[in-house]
Each structure stands twice: as C-alpha cells, then as structure tokens.
Amino acid sequence: MKTHKILQAPIPMRWVGPMKLSGHLIEEKLSVPLATYETPLWPSVGRGARISTLCEEGIKVSVIDERMTRSILLEAEDAYAAHQAIQSLKARMDDLNEVVAKSSRFAKLIDINSQVVGNLIYLRLEFTTGDASGHNMVTNAADHLIPWILTEYPHLQYSSISGNYCSDKKATAVNGILGRGKYVVCEILIPRDIVERRLHSTPEKIVDLNIKKNLIGTMIAGGLRSANAHYANMLLAFYLATGQDAANIIEGSQGVVHADVRNGDLYFSCTLPNLIVGSVGNGKGIDFVEENLERLGCRDDREPGANARRLAAICGATVLCGELSLIAAQTNPGELMQSHLQMERK
C-alpha cells in the first residue's frame, strides 16, 4: 500500500487565557490553544477567561461520567429470541470482559444498552478506554466480542459492526440521555458588578436571553437535546489544536446552558454530555499537538484516564468562556456585529 506524507495545514492558532479552573480534577490557572479561522473567537473566549479569574472559584468543572460506545447489529429468529439473548448477555458481563481484555489492556465493558426492532438486536456496548477517546479501541473490542457471541448463541446472525445506535458523529437523543465520551458540567458564579463592568450586561438580561434564545429558540427550530449558542465554535478550535477527531463536534455540541440569578449574582453553567477527547491515540503524533498537550499538563505521569479527564475539563471550561461572552454580547444591540467588523475586516 502506498503511503502519503502527512501535511500540516497552517490553521491559525493562538493561546487564550489564562482562565481559572477549580473542582475535583484541577485547581489552577492556565491558557488554552485554539486553532480557528474565525479570529473573533480568540478575544471572545479571552473575555470569558478573564471573567473567570475575577471570580472566587473561577470555573468549577465536574466530570461525572465517561464511556465510549459501539453498537453492534445482530439478528435473531424473532423478537422474543432477541429479547432472551439480550437478557442472557447482560447477565454475563464477566465473560464478556474476559473477551474484551484480549483486545486491549485499557478497554473495559461497563454497560450494555439494547433495542429490539422486529428480529433485529441493537447492542450498545459501553466501555471505559483509558486516556484514548476510544473509537478504534471499542470497535476492536466489538470485533472480538462478535465471534464469541455467535459461538455462544448460534441462533444469532451477524449484521454489522455498527448499527448506528452508538451513535457516532450524529446528533441523536441516545447520546444525550446515555452519554458518549466525557459527561462534563462547568459552572461559574459571577458577582453582579463584574457582569455589569466586564460583560456590559446584567444577570437578569443574560438569564432572560438564555431562556428566549437557547431554550425557546432552539425548541422551535427543532433542536435535538441541545440548548446553546455556539458550543461547536469552541469545540472545533480546541479539537484541532489538541489532535481530536473534529467530526465529534456533532454530538459534542449537543449540550445545555443553564443560567440563574442567585442573590443578585449570575450563576452560569454549560453541560456537555458527549465531550469526546483523548490525550493519546490517532492525531496526537503531530509536533504542535504534542507540544500543546504537554503545555496543558495532559502528558503527565498519571493513572490511566486521568490525563483525558483533565483535557475534558479544560475543554469544557473553554466552551463556557466562549458561551458566556457571546450571550452577554447579544444582550446589547449591535455589539456582536461591531466586534466582527472590527476584528475581521481591514
């Protein structure tokens, strides 16, 4: 097979920050790399980052779940036979993990979700994958599991290694409900005077716009488990700078902004149930990616999975910074377009 030289495309990149992070994974100030052609993103995220340094706890980040999924598609004789096979498989997790262990020393099967459609069996296999995002790892594990399942259950037949119930790089309800990647929640409490002086808005205006724009606006547009202004902008810039599979911003951008007024101050949060990142694996061998991961502290000697969780926490905080800045800007007529005109047009 002919190999081709990998060219490093010159996507503009800048380090933005510092931002202040706290929580069970990280307690520090740091800057983040963002690679993008949308140059106003840098100062916008930068404004959110500056706000975080002025708040007592900064951005409090919680990673509350992690899993990577692959849904295999099998066929049974009929629906009841499919149901019986599923119940049997779910009772044999130890046996299944013995097979998984032969495919990888980091993959571990933690749950199985299923759907029966006629005689079709959709098995959503859910794994932890260490510091890798895990796409290839879970597919390899599934490739080991399928022949074992077909041997143990000879009345079943193979249909596909992926039945789209995973659901990879598609906007689906199942990912938001069951999770795919890291489930990250970022929160910040901003004093009223900082909202007024630095964001040129008020807590009430931001809460009101979040309801009318992110919640109601997305609902009437037919959004799917999503209520945010532009998660995808920050995700893509962060993904390109840290060697992630950029197509995963499709499910990654499904998330919810929640804002509230607390004792006169602004509570602002971003929930990202499908944040797919890894600190090792495909895409990480490029020089600038390695340098960025090292500078972010995601190449340190930690237990398997800890560097990836740290990276997810930093990515989620970056999303919050950009989301907060944009929502605040949109509470003021003309501010959004004026900033683009100043920064993008010469």
Rank of each mutant, 00 (worst) to 15 (best):
I188V: 10
R309W: 05
K90Q: 14
R299T: 07
S62H: 15
A312L: 07
L235A: 10
Y122A: 05
A141R: 02
I194R: 01
I121G: 00
I161R: 10
Q157Y: 11
S160W: 08
L341S: 11
I314D: 00
Q84F: 03
L336S: 15
S44N: 12
A241T: 01
P154S: 11
R309M: 13
H24F: 09
N164Y: 09
M19D: 00
A171W: 13
I286W: 03
V319Y: 00
V63Y: 04
V185G: 02
F106G: 03
S52V: 14
S167R: 10
G176Q: 02
Y267M: 06
R47Y: 02
S62G: 12
E38M: 14
L156Y: 02
S325I: 11
K102D: 01
S279C: 09
A317T: 01
R262T: 12
N263L: 08
S253F: 03
I249L: 13
L293N: 02
Y80K: 15
S62A: 15
E66D: 11
E251I: 10
E77H: 08
T128D: 03
T128P: 04
S88G: 14
K182E: 05
L336T: 14
L235Q: 06
D78K: 05
P33H: 08
N164Q: 10
M137F: 03
P154C: 15
S160G: 10
G264I: 01
G181F: 00
S31I: 07
E344Y: 03
I177H: 08
N233C: 14
K102Q: 09
K170E: 15
T242S: 07
I121N: 00
E294L: 06
S253P: 03
T139I: 11
A101M: 02
R70N: 13
D65R: 14
L41H: 04
I220F: 08
A141C: 14
S103I: 10
N175P: 06
V116E: 06
Y239S: 13
T331Y: 04
V261H: 01
P304S: 09
T318V: 03
